[in-house]
Design a protein around this nucleic acid. Structure first.
Length: 786
DNA sequence: AACTTAACTTAGGATGACAAAG
DNA sequence: CTTTGTCATCCTAAGTTAAGTT
């Protein structure tokens, strides 16, 4: 923080993160302490008296928030479910979890598939036989196609809804495993410790390099990041006794390495086109085997076949683990998911796979455990694949289904906003927020993660009340993005939040009797598969369609139509709070544009003066109608003129030098210096002229100039000024909203497809190539779809 | 555990400024 | 003075991986 001596220079988005940082530092005692509930406050009643005056009588959080015994709490919460009317527990009978079969590389070849696989097959036999036969047919057909022209895409959306085949996603699955990052090649550049160059073991050098590359970034300057990196690096240093004893981060100077990388970067840029081309080709050759998997005979694109390279964990927000070393992944840690009959790809030389499994009900191709949070990473098919496409379409269909139920759901929760039962009332209030504000569900998080919240995990401090009915939300959501919004709400919602807050007290969760699980369970009783996130999809798509209809004019030009499209898109992005960090030089950029505008205005002003000089009568007519340049101060003009002169001189000198170089290379003698002087003199003359202008207040008008000509020039300038202004405005408006996320994940692509058809806008204007590929299933939609 | 959503990072293509040529 | 070619800059799209939900 100390680095921010001039706060105003910091882009907004960065600031927001910094502020947050300050906040968490201020409350150093840590969250766990803050959130520990006051046992004296614990109460047990769970019926609500609606009268405000008797708020005190309200029940309280059994799970009054504590993280320390969260597990016990959760169990308790689930026992609460007994209160739920039976009718609401529709949950389908659980299928036995499929057994994973780990096959060691050695035994995999011979014995293989028969026993376990057969049992499994028997279980699902009845349901599956039909599908299997079908898929065999499909396979034969597509194999033929594949041999000729591999790309003929399988149009799954044209097939009638195949029987939902239990949870089985595939019968045969073949792929070439994963691509590991190349082994580390030491560069030998010595960093300094305590001012002296030191040599490091390759492993220690690698980790130091990870950090060195980041020293100029926000991460590299973040103390938590530094601390975590440093302690993990020390562990690595200890592993090789030849490493120097490094105990103080402050004494480390990573700059030599950083500079080395900068030079390398520059060198890469300087490569010729041909060299770049060969590098690209080599890369493609290495990747080639991993690009596609074969699913039931169909060739499908793989998404992320590359194993994530080692590096420093770049946790967002103030993640406690940010900066920790993300270790290199070895084949031993990687599990492959393959068909029983598929050949097992070769692991790295001298290595073995961690395991090979045949989980037919999963869509992942490979997985490994990551060492920072202990979570599992997966290799999936690409977004263009049928698996992803199908589930994407299902998602939007589900959102469309919601339309049929939403009125009933809304009526219910409105009614339940003053339910006697605390839990029900909280649930109804949460549903209101999820529905109206498109908040995320908000699972609880651990102490070893960034402190972010969603609807169910909102805490006391995240919502403030502004009578009569305004709620002010201010919290960090997913990715530590700030959600800051003032919304007028239903009177009862306002009242409820007030009550809940009073009950739970500071630092505690507002919906203390609600979990995402119980909420989703309840939603599921309205409609199969309905969960909190469906509301986000539904509301996003719905808003988009609404806005689009409202904004688009038949008679508009295509750019205008696109503007409407983007505006509708922006509405959705705002609803979903999709932000992007303002680029580091946004401020500069805007300043540059403003300067450009002023420079144009300066020119225009001169032209006007000239016109008046030519024809004094013009003064009162057209010219006065024109907008006055309020931001053109004399001071600025002087500055600007100086600038123009300096630039002109520079230009002349460099041109002169360049010319000389050219002459020299041709073996000719350089131009005489007098020539340069001669040319520079012209600028001097210009300068004098400007000074004279300043004194007399008159501009010398060229002999060829006429009023008409000057007016024409002014019109041109006017246009340019206007264009630049709107450009600036557009940039300013959109600087913080990211349109891409909603387009990619929330807005039903069929709405766009229909819109393009209806208004004759080419689809490629609204969908990039990847988007078109991903949404192929939506492109051939009927024009009357809604 | 498995899958979707999301922002951050990077690559490369479009765009505009500038110099040289017409 | 306008047009054309080149280079740097900027911006978008693709790629990556962290952070959510179920």
């Amino acid at each position: 923080m100390s680095s921010s001596s001039s706060e105003d220079d910091i882009p907004l988005s960065k600031k927001r993160r910094q502020d947050k940082f300050a906040e968490s530092n201020a409350s150093m005692s840590g969250r766990s302490a803050e959130r520990t509930p006051d046992p004296a406050m614990a109460r047990t009643k769970s019926v609500i008296n609606d009268d405000d005056s008797s708020d005190e009588e309200m029940p309280l959080a059994k799970r009054a928030s504590s993280k320390t015994n969260g597990k016990a709490m959760k169990r308790e919460a689930s026992s609460d479910e007994d209160n739920v009317p039976l009718s609401k527990i529709v949950k389908t009978t659980k299928k036995p979890t499929p057994k994973k079969r780990i096959v060691n590389k050695e035994d995999s070849s011979s014995d293989d598939e028969k026993p376990l696989a057969k049992v499994k097959k028997d279980i699902k036999k009845v349901a599956k036989v039909k599908a299997e036969e079908e898929s065999k047919v499909v396979r034969k057909q597509t194999k033929k196609v594949k041999d000729e022209e591999a790309e003929a895409q399988f149009k799954w959306w044209e097939k009638s809804n195949e029987e939902e085949d239990g949870d089985v996603k595939w019968n045969e699955l073949e792929h070439n495993g994963v691509l590991f990052p190349p082994a580390y090649v030491p560069h030998g550049v010595k960093m300094k410790y305590d001012g002296k160059p030191i040599s490091l073991s390759p492993e220690a050098e690698e980790v130091a390099s990870f950090f060195a590359a980041l020293i100029e970034t926000d991460h590299g300057k973040n103390p938590v990041f530094q601390k975590n990196f440093f302690s993990d690096w020390q562990e690595i240093l200890k592993k090789d006794s030849s490493n120097p004893n490094i105990t103080s981060f402050e004494k480390c100077d990573f700059r030599p390495m950083y500079e080395h990388f900068e030079v390398e970067k520059e060198r890469k840029k300087q490569l010729t086109k041909a060299e770049k081309q060969t590098i690209k080709e080599e890369k493609a050759k290495v990747e080639e085997p991993y690009l596609y998997a074969i699913v039931d005979g169909r060739k499908e694109k793989v998404g992320n076949f590359r194993i994530e390279p080692p590096g420093l964990f770049r946790g967002r927000g103030d993640h406690p683990k940010t900066g920790r070393l993300k270790k290199r992944v070895m084949p031993e840690q990687v599990t492959l998911n393959l068909g029983e009959n598929a050949p097992i790809p070769k692991p790295l030389d001298g290595h073995k796979w961690g395991g090979v499994v045949h989980i037919h009900e999963a869509t992942w191709l490979a997985s490994w455990k990551e060492n920072i949070n202990g979570s599992i990473k997966y290799v999936f098919l690409a977004a263009t694949s049928s698996w992803k496409g199908q589930s994407d379409m299902q998602k939007f269909e589900k959102a469309r289904d919601l339309k049929k139920h939403v009125n009933r759901i809304r009526r219910d929760y409105r009614q339940q906003l003053n339910d006697k039962l605390m839990e029900t009332r909280q649930r109804a209030t949460a549903m209101y927020l999820i529905d109206v504000l498109a908040l995320r569900a908000g699972n609880e998080k651990g102490d070893d993660e960034a402190d972010t919240v969603g609807c169910c995990s909102l805490r006391y401090e995240h919502v403030t009340l502004e009578p009569p009915n305004i709620l002010v939300f201010d919290f960090l959501g997913k990715d530590s993005i700030r959600y800051h919004n003032s919304v007028p709400v239903d009177a009862q919602v306002f009242k409820n939040i007030k009550i809940f807050k009073k009950q739970v007290g500071p630092d505690n969760m507002i919906f203390d009797r609600l979990t995402t699980m119980s909420l989703n369970k309840h939603l599921g009783s309205y409609m199969k598969g309905l969960t909190a996130k469906v509301f986000r999809t539904y509301n996003a798509s719905h808003t988009f369609q609404e806005q689009l209809n409202k904004l688009t004019r038949e008679e508009d030009s295509i750019p205008d139509k696109l503007l409407s499209y983007n505006r509708a898109n922006r509405e959705v992005a705002i609803l979903c709070n999709h932000q992007r960090s303002v680029s580091k030089n946004h401020g500069q950029m805007i300043a540059k544009i403003q300067d450009k505008i002023r420079a144009l205005k300066y020119q225009r002003k001169r032209l006007r003066k000239q016109i008046v000089q030519l024809d004094p009568k013009m003064k009162k007519s057209k010219l006065t109608e024109m907008e006055e340049e309020s931001d053109l101060e004399d001071e600025w003009i002087a500055e600007h003129q100086k600038d123009l002169l300096v630039k002109e001189r520079e230009k002349i000198t460099t041109r002169f030098e360049k010319n000389n170089e050219k002459l020299a290379s041709e073996g000719k003698p350089p131009q005489p210096k007098e020539e340069l002087k001669e040319k520079l003199k012209a600028v001097d003359d210009w300068e004098k002229e400007l000074q004279k202008e300043k004194k007399t207040g008159k501009i010398e008008v060229k002999a060829s100039a006429t009023v008409e000509k000057l007016l024409a020039q002014i019109t041109k300038l006017d246009e340019r000024i206007k264009a630049t202004k709107t450009q600036a405005l557009d940039k300013e408006e959109g600087k913080e909203t990211a349109l891409g996320t909603s387009k990619l994940n929330y807005i039903d692509p069929r709405i766009s497809a229909v819109w393009c058809k209806k208004y004759n806008v080419p689809v490629e204007k609204v969908f990039s190539k990847t988007l078109r590929d991903k949404f192929q299933w939506a492109m051939e939609i009927d024009a009357d779809w809604r």
